[in-house]
Design a binder for these strands. Structure first.
Length: 269
DNA sequence: TAGAAATGTTTAG
DNA sequence: TAAACCTTTCTAT
């Protein structure tokens, strides 16, 4: 489930559960075994995220995690379950009240030990993240407004904008009634301002809800109870179904190697 | 039980 | 542009 909101939420949860205390670090699968041994028993200083990257600092040594397409963290309190499957990294700590907390990482594209300098190199090649307060949307627009590449492709480029993935790409373009095929240079400053503001709202809502919900209806229902799962998106994965606004069949096409979903009527230009 | 698909990135050609 | 990487989950047979 990894777009930027997932990492933001994970960093916050792990910070609360483990930071400031010693962590028992293991790698039952073995792929992170050497590094786990080196970190085992040390105090975790803090956990932060930027875009889709997670950084956990143990003094000068930083665990860098990128979940990729299939990576997941699972966590709980009390005793951790018997390790099963390919368990790359496990953390165990005393938790707030000494009852015990644990978290397991599987399937990540990156789980590596890096230095502060290497963290900086990663941050340097990322565009502004709508979830970070200090992010400057003008930096993204400077690139977008100079590019002939389609806006649907630019939104997926982490050097332009950090944290947006395939779901937010499809949904933000629909909500702004913008064709994914419009060249970046033809996106007006006001259109970009509206898109950024909406991304901030949607991604914050994603952090809060723990999943991506972009429809007004799902929003309303969330206040009364859990939204219907298939009500959460306007176009993402709704190929061939009627558009929720105009009834036209939602279309799909591969753009930058990923399935793009859009309504050809609502998002005509 | 097998196969496909999945919210992603990097490297090779 | 395509393939590789890596794991889980859902669907079809």
């Amino acid at each position: 489930m990894p777009e930027g909101h997932t990492l933001f939420r994970l960093a916050r949860e792990q910070q609360a559960a483990f930071a400031g205390r010693e962590v028992h670090v293991t790698s039952p699968q073995g792929r992170f075994a050497g590094q786990a041994e080196m970190l085992d028993g040390r105090v975790l200083d803090d956990v932060t995220s930027y875009g889709k990257h997670l950084f956990a600092a143990f003094g000068p040594d930083v665990v860098h995690v990128h979940l990729g397409l299939y990576g997941t963290f699972t966590s709980g309190t009390g005793l951790p379950p018997e390790p099963r499957g390919a368990l790359r990294m496990r953390w165990e700590g005393p938790g707030e009240d000494g009852e015990g907390v644990w978290t397991d990482l599987r399937g990540a594209t990156a789980c590596e030990l890096i230095t502060d300098g290497e963290v900086q190199l990663i941050l340097d090649r990322l565009g502004p993240d709508p979830l970070r307060k200090r992010s400057d949307p003008a930096k993204a627009f400077a690139r977008i407004s100079r590019s002939r590449v389609a806006i649907g492709a630019l939104l997926m480029d982490q050097a332009v904008l950090a944290g947006v993935g395939n779901v937010y790409r499809a949904e933000i373009l629909f909500r702004q009634r913008l064709s994914p095929f419009r060249p970046g240079k033809d996106v007006a400053a006001e259109e970009w301002a509206a898109m950024w503001a909406d991304l901030v709202v949607l991604m914050r809502a994603g952090v809060k809800a723990g999943r991506i919900v972009t429809t007004e209806r799902a929003d309303r229902e969330r206040r009364r109870g859990p939204a219907l799962r298939d009500d959460a998106h306007y176009v993402y994965r709704r190929t061939g179904l009627p558009c929720r606004i105009c009834g036209t069949e939602v279309r799909t096409e591969v753009m930058v190697g990923r399935n793009l979903f859009w309504c050809p009527t609502c998002q005509a230009v």
